[in-house]
């Protein structure tokens, strides 16, 4: 431990406070008893698909596209997830299949 226990606890509480602020803010700004404005209702509809797009790209942000293996494990695994999902429509199968392939690729083929 670099910090003292009290300092460590203070850091943990500061991190928790920052995280909780981002989670609670919308609920404070738009309290339950008030009818949400049309803009908020609109955002509630369009933000989920947009944020899912953000999260997919965010997960792949660390991939190096300009040097070997040029993101090949990620491209292949994402393609398999998508194909499995379009074919069978089974969430667990798609995720398990893609993850197994990815592990195989990064541990053996592109290791």
């Amino acid at each position: 431990m670099t910090l003292t226990p009290v300092e460590t606890l203070a850091i943990i509480l500061a991190l928790a406070a920052g995280t909780q602020l981002t989670r609670w803010l919308p609920f404070w700004v738009f309290p339950e008893h008030k009818e949400p404005s049309p803009v908020v209702t609109y955002l509630g509809k369009v933000l989920p698909p947009a944020m899912m797009g953000l999260l997919v790209v965010y997960c792949l942000k660390g991939v190096v596209w300009t040097a070997a293996p040029y993101g090949a494990p990620e491209i292949l695994a994402v393609a398999v997830v998508a194909l499995l999902h379009l074919w069978k429509g089974n969430v667990l199968l798609s995720i398990a299949g893609g993850t197994a392939l990815y592990m195989l690729l990064v541990q053996t083929v592109f290791a």
Partner: peptide
Amino acid sequence: TGLDFALTALFVVLFLEQW
């Protein structure tokens, strides 16, 4: 190594569900 790809895969699947 690579097991955490499950979360990327989850987001891909949920993206397709939205799509």
